[in-house]
Design a protein around this nucleic acid. Sequence first.
RNA 1: GGAGAGAUGGCCGAGCUGGCUGAAGGCGCUCGCCUGCUAAGCGAGUGUGGGGUGAAAGCUCCACCGAGGGUUCGAAUCCCUCUCUCUCCGCCA
Length: 424
Amino acid sequence: MLEIKFVRQNLSEVEKSLSTRGNTADLETFKARDAMRREILHEAEGLKHRRNVVSEQIADMKKKGEDAESMVLEMREVSGKIKELDKSLSEHEEAIMTILMGIPNIPHTSVPVGKNESDNPVMKQVGKCPDFDSDPKPHWEVGENLGILDFERASKITGARFPLYLGAGAKLERALISFMLDIHTMEHGYKEALPPFIVNRQTMTGTAQLPKFEEDLFKLEGWDYFLIPTAEVPLTNIHQGEILDEGMLPRYYTAYTPCFRSEAGSYGKDTRGLIRQHQFNKVELVKICSPETSYDELESLLSNAETILKRLELPYQVLTLCTGDMGFAASKTYDIEVWMPAQGVYREISSCSNCESFQARRANIRFRRKGKKGTELAHTLNGSGLAVGRTFAAILENYQQPDGSVIIPDALRTYMGGLEKIEV
RNA sequence: GGAGAGAUGGCCGAGCUGGCUGAAGGCGCUCGCCUGCUAAGCGAGUGUGGGGUGAAAGCUCCACCGAGGGUUCGAAUCCCUCUCUCUCCGCCA
């Protein structure tokens, strides 16, 4: 959410930034409601002041045994008026909130303007794409042939877009999770968390999944609770409503969680394999920091995620998302895409964003500078480090052998009990 | 699931027979004094959000005692609903 004052004072800038993202908002209504709100607020506060003063007089008079009946009658009327004003005030505030909640973050000045994913500039490409004598198989074929992935039985158990890992496959997924968490906690300084996988409405609103994107979420029947679509949600909300000491910043958190997404509107996309599932595993990185450090923190967050791919020796590229392709809460986002040889394309495996104060304002995450009065909003960042299922898929495709087996990347072997190769 | 107790400022903790209580007292923290050092002691200050005014410091007003409603001229204090925490019983991984 943007600051109401900022929107009030920068209407045209907000409108311009919205258009580069391909969004609109009812700023006319905002302007009108905002003006009315302030007018009513002024009147209501004046009456409340009068009520406070007169109530004190009434107390004095009663103490002296004097008759205060006429004042009581007058105040009865004033209180009625206040009640009316407060009601209309909250209506305006609700309407303003609805508009404000629907406005995406303002892109950072360094973000390239563009319409969609085809306008995302490639920043760099790392690693060498493997050569294959014959056409490489897609990961679902590799996995099913090895008996480590079973989509048919998964759909029997639940339905489409759920994974079933078996044997060395289940173990590989678990190994990847441990591998990623160990690097982030032991080498990059993140604190490991194991948060709830179900969160309430306020938490979902804090990180901006709500109110706008409710249809993307799984909601529990009979509860105002939701399955998390990413660990970004519980991790960023750890300090929801808190005022942190400057010395506590930056906070780095990492967690493995399953992620649940309804994938509404993606029918027919990536129907095969691990790429687009209703449930998938992810190791997430979250940072909470002071505003002046957040763009440096974004660069190091990106490099923390890249480390995983480098250690696994998987080829990848990094893109800067253009204004039209960025997520709702982000000011700037880098995507990491891993090489998928069977399709001959790079696929997103991590998305690293600086949300500046956009989420912090909603989740009320503030900090106090030493020796300074007042509080400031923190900046929040998040990134995948990495999407585990997609990493699994990339390993199957990049490390597949002509005989159908899959070599385990060196870095992972200790996590696989020394296993060097998965074969039938 | 049944019975009871509670939720107050950074923390602890009064107030809860309604009216100078934004809130006693203590701890912590900041600044100053004192002091071989440290500790102790003394003095002052120390919440958040939102209006108005001002270049700013500031001044001023409104709101906030878990959340939301209600009663009242007036609510931290009374009533209702909800959430959470704790204790006991039951059930259970």
